[in-house]
Design a protein around this nucleic acid. Structure first.
Length: 594
RNA sequence: GGCCUCGUGGCGCAACUGAAUAGCGCACUGGAUUUCGGCUCCAGCGGUUACAGGUUUGAAUCCUGUCGGGGUCACCA
């Protein structure tokens, strides 16, 4: 149990004894650096339960804590802040506990409890993944890892939008202009090839529109009447009717896309435990509509369309079934959610989807709740903002798409330049070097994207992200590599893992222990908030604290006090370990040397 | 226009969800180390938290309004 938790319990007990009040919770935070003390008990929030002067209450609690708790060496009270001075020995024993844990910070999975499904990526199959997908994938994957680290089962999934007019457009253009090209014959990744034909379709479509306008039609008419579009719509109908030729083409081209996606996912370092194909799920949810009508949640209009009226909840009236009886997006999502709970042992779901769909998910979750599903309270829309580049905005419909593969390639290439110039790469063969460049380039990309609060739109600056200094992935990786180097040079032996509690430590030693101690709480909080940024910021803080220690402490390798030397090496060892684990949660690898 | 969301030093981001003098990185200025790794560390400069009210012992955070950016308002997905 962490020091904080122990002191929370102790404080509650004291308050109960001396003020006869049961506090629901006690806030204990790290003492600000400019104040004396280690941990601070917040007295202000107690004023709601205890009447009196905050300083006096603080003093009374402080005196009791000092008298009864061996960890508390002393205290001071400033206004409503009770600053506790903790015995160094308490930190040393905390550190000993940390050392004893193999997977410090990570809880083993409790298979008996229902899990969480985390959906991310969910691409369309008509074009390659782009910068927006990268943020989506990194966020979804990291959240999945973080939630899993708290001991919950996690199922990573994606909904593949494999049907619809968009893929028919690619299919049609390929059929017409493709000359039977294949990924094998062109050497192109399958998703790129199919994406090219999507672009080709659009070009032809625009030509036809221009021609029709030339014939005197309005733009609106032209857009609806362009022959190539009509043909694509025809193709979609045929697909829905199961036309063998169309289905075969559809299967062939989608297969190309999946091969391409697999490569991108592999390079990004993400994976999935299950897949949902929209071609299988797009009809789901219709049966629930009747159920909703019976329950009075939905209402039927005279034309046969079915709606839900959410005006009382401050939202709109939303359609859930068309007048021709076919499903809409919402119907499908309702059905898919229900299906997932049937398919897997889960009672919570996270949807990683851009913030342009905030409204959709608000409605979806509300409908599911009104339909009475008990798991509907545990749905979360991991909503994220757009990624912009220094040069301007990035969005697929504006044409200037940054391709995910190319982005990763560029990051690796930049990392290669920097590392070749200033890296320590002795003893690495060519393959290992390439792996390292890849690790650094991707680490830069991932860290930069994940350190930002998901819901905010962000600016991705590739150059800044690969900087070896500052708040970047490579800086963290570098620190890890350096620690490993120190351990190697020192002949460190991890077998002796017990630090004598009477060892005299400096503030810098203690500061690193304090930082290490925060790791489990950080993971818990990141999981509760579905926020990888908390983990990212934590690693950075830890790394800074370590560097400060490293700089201010005499050379460890030459330390003559054997106990102190071993302690400091253990501190290095465990710091490296936590950096690695924390980065792992973010999908970032850390090198042994760089 | 309605609804949602964001607005923090020149730039990029924090602030444990209401607490102390709003932190950090880049950039800029000085300094320390420069044989544990080229790095790193220490210090300085720089903010009326878009603006105006309000609630509170206490507000970047909650409420109201204004301004500005983004999103969304399909029997598309």
């Amino acid at each position: 149990m962490s020091l904080q938790s122990q002191l929370e319990i102790a404080t509650k007990a004291i308050v109960k004894e001396h003020f006869s009040v049961e506090l629901p919770q006690v806030d204990i935070s790290l003492t600000r650096k400019d104040q004396a003390g280690d941990l601070t008990v917040m007295v202000f929030p107690m004023l709601r339960h205890i009447k009196g002067n905050p300083a006096a209450i603080g003093t009374q609690i402080g005196e009791q804590l000092k008298a009864t708790n061996s960890h508390v060496a002393d205290f001071n009270v400033v206004q409503g802040f009770l600053n506790l001075h903790i015995e160094p020995a308490a930190y040393i024993s905390a550190f000993n506990e940390i050392l004893a844990q193999e997977d410090y910070g990570v809880k083993p999975i409790d298979a008996s409890q229902p899990g969480v499904m985390v959906e991310y990526s969910s691409p369309n199959t008509n074009k390659p993944l782009h910068l927006g997908h990268v943020r989506n994938n990194l966020l979804g994957y990291a959240v999945a890892q973080i939630v899993q680290a708290t001991g919950r089962k996690v199922n990573k999934t994606q909904v593949i939008n494999d049907r619809g007019i968009h893929i028919c457009k690619s299919m049609l253009a390929w059929e017409r202009f493709g000359n039977a090209e294949t990924p094998a014959s062109t050497g192109l990744k399958g998703d790129k090839l199919v994406g090219n034909y999507y672009v080709k379709f659009d070009q032809e479509y625009k030509k036809e529109i221009a021609a029709l306008i030339g014939e005197g039609k309005t733009e609106e008419e032209a857009k609806k009447q362009a022959p190539i579009l009509l043909e694509a719509q025809q193709m979609l109908l045929k697909w829905e009717q199961g036309d063998p030729a169309v289905v075969a083409l559809w299967e062939k081209m989608n297969a190309w896309v999946y091969e391409g996606f697999d490569v991108t996912y592999k390079n990004l370092g993400v994976d999935f435990d299950s897949l949902y194909f929209e071609s299988n799920t797009y009809l789901l949810g219709k049966d629930v509509v009747q159920d909703g009508l019976d329950k009075g949640v939905f209402e039927k209009d005279p034309d046969g369309s079915v709606w839900i009226d959410l005006t009382e909840d401050g939202l709109d009236r939303k359609i859930v079934l068309r007048s021709d009886g076919t499903a809409v997006y919402m119907t499908q999502d309702i059905g898919t959610a229900i299906q997932r709970v049937k398919d897997f042992d889960i009672n919570a779901m996270v949807y990683t989807v851009g913030n342009e769909q905030d409204y959709h998910f608000k409605v979806l979750f509300l409908i599911l709740k009104k339909l009475g599903f008990d798991w509907a309270d545990h749905l979360f829309h991991l909503s994220y903002g757009m990624v912009e580049l220094p040069s301007g905005k990035m969005k697929s419909r504006e044409g200037t798409v940054v391709d995910a593969d190319e982005l990763m390639e560029e990051m690796t290439s930049t990392a290669r330049d920097i590392a070749q110039e200033q890296g320590k790469l002795e003893g690495l063969d060519a393959t290992e070097k390439e792996q390292l460049y890849n690790m650094i380039g991707l680490g830069a990309l991932k860290y930069f994207m994940l350190k930002v609060d998901p819901k905010k739109s962000m600016l991705f600056d590739p150059t800044e992200s690969v900087d070896f200094q500052g708040n970047t992935g490579p800086f963290i990786q570098y620190t890890h590599a350096r620690i490993k180097s120190i351990l190697k040079k020192s002949g460190f032996d991890a077998a002796s893992k017990n630090v004598p509690t009477d060892l005299a430590l400096t503030d810098k030693d203690l500061a690193v222990i304090k930082a290490l101690q925060l790791f489990p709480d950080t993971i818990a909080s990141a999981a509760n908030n579905y926020s990888p940024a908390l983990v990212a910021n934590y690693v950075y803080e830890l790394v800074k604290e370590f560097n400060s220690f490293y700089q201010n402490v005499p050379k460890i390798v030459e330390e003559e006090n054997a106990d102190l030397k071993q302690f400091r090496l253990l501190l290095c060892y465990k710091t490296a370990d936590v950096i690695k684990t924390a980065c792992g949660l973010l999908g970032i690898e850390v090198p042994e040397q760089m």
